[in-house]
Structure formats: structure tokens, C-alpha cells
Nucleic acid binder design. Structure first.
Lengths: 117, 117
DNA sequence: TGTGGATACATAGAGCTAATATGTATAATA
DNA sequence: TATTATACATATTAGCTCTATGTATCCACA
């Protein structure tokens, strides 16, 4: 009952950008927040998220600053840039196009999962 | 203003399965239908769709039979199998998980795209 | 009749990329 | 003292996807 890797890949960027639009955060916290928001369905690994964050940084959508937790552990805080906000808006538009297209099919009008297969 | 390739990849399978859940169809018609449903935003190439159909066939989600158009041109008609219906229901569940997660963020509560960047 | 565009399916291979495993380090807890 | 949680990072490989290319027929039109 997990989420397919294509869908995980497609949702990673909008999720990260969207989370950061609420304020700065850092890798480990983002992973925990996604797990919580999805009620345990989306469990990202760190080895998957950090390359995403680096890619977003290279693209100019986020910027990072080193900081510290209360306990003294180092953290890299990411925040959204203006370009990141524009990108987030475009990602949202893209998802609306796709979900609208799926709504044009019986995708969201399905019956329950057939039994006894 | 196009759709990112990750999102295209993630939506291809549910879209095809969902279209076929309305009745049998064939490659070329599916491409046209997706373009129409998306109001021109999703323009699949044949070189992209046929491998997807073959993959779905190998997975047992669809089955194909050769037929002919009224004009006599050969066509390969695909129809959904029982397993395909189950898979479609699961795809739908996955999309609901992800869109619900995105709804938990400001993703769907954004303002208009910032001007003058 | 022949030319171009639409219809219709198919696949090889290059080019990309993402998941896994692995590495480093510190704090908290048992 | 050992283990778990926190926290970041990346190399490599295994996999996949997109592009280009190929085949073939029908129809409209010049």
C-alpha cells in the first residue's frame, strides 16, 4: 500500500516548496513533516531528500544558511526565494491541469475496489 | 507553460487506465483524448505512449486485440482487465494520499503568481 | 497521379536520473 | 556503553525514459 515512485518523484518538489513557503525549515524536519502530513504514507529517506534540496538550490528556488539546533547540533536551514515562489505557483498550475484532466475521466468517480480478484 | 516530465510520468498510467475504464480504445485515439481532456496542455507523443501501453500489457492491466478502423487501417484495441481495474483503484488511492498531503500545506491556498520578478 | 498530412504502430539506444548503500558526526537515552 | 535519534552528504549503479527513426495506409487536393 505504498505510493508509486513516479508519484513520489512528481510530488517531491511541490511538497518541499510548499512546506518552505510557510517558513524556513531543514532536511530532517521536512522528512518528518511530510510523514506527518501524509499520515505515514509518504516516508522519504534522507538520501532522497538532500539531492532534491540541492537541486532546488542550484535552480535558485531555495537558499540555505547554516544554523544550530537548541541542543547545538548543526542544521542547514532552507528558505524559499522569489523565484521559488514563482516556481511553486507554476507547480500548482501544473497539478491543477493534471487533476482537471483526471477529473475529465472516471478517475474520481470510481466504485470501491472490486472484491475477490 | 508545459507540464513537468515527472508529473507527466506520474499521470500517464492513471490517465490511460482511467480512459480505458470507459471502454476499449487504441493508441492514437488515447493521445487525442488526453490532448482534448487537458485542453491542449498534455500533448503525448506516440513514442511515449506505446511503451506505456506495452508495459501495462506486460503487467496484466490491459489486453490488446487487433482490429480495423472503418477505413480499413489496422488498430490495436486495448481493454482493461480485472487486475487493471484493481490497479486503477489503487492509483486513485495514491493520488488521494498525495493531494491530501499537498492540501495540508499552503499548496492549494496560494495567492496569484507574484508580479515583476 | 503524386505529394503532404493525418492516421497508426513500433523499438533501439543514448542520455539521464534516482534509489541504495555508505560515510561522517553529535546528542539523547537506556 | 550501546543504541537510537538527529543531521547532512554523495558516489555508483541500476533502471528507465525520451528522441529519433522506421514502417505502412488512407485521404484530400493539386
Amino acid at each position: 500500500m505504498s505510493i508509486g515512485k513516479d508519484l513520489v518523484a512528481a510530488s517531491a518538489t511541490p511538497l518541499v516548496l510548499s512546506i518552505l513557503s510557510e517558513g524556513e525549515s531543514y532536511g530532517y524536519a521536512i522528512i518528518k513533516q511530510v510523514e506527518e502530513l501524509s499520515e505515514g504514507e509518504l516516508k522519504w529517506t534522507d538520501g532522497m531528500l538532500y539531492p532534491v534540496l540541492h537541486r532546488l538550490e542550484r535552480a535558485g528556488y531555495v537558499e540555505a544558511t547554516w544554523g544550530k539546533s537548541e541542543s547545538g547540533r548543526r542544521r542547514k536551514y532552507y528558505h524559499l526565494t522569489k523565484r521559488g515562489k514563482v516556481e511553486l505557483a507554476d507547480q500548482r498550475r501544473q497539478w491543477e491541469v493534471v487533476t482537471a484532466t483526471l477529473r475529465g475521466t472516471p478517475f474520481h468517480r470510481l466504485e470501491a475496489i472490486p472484491q475477490g480478484i
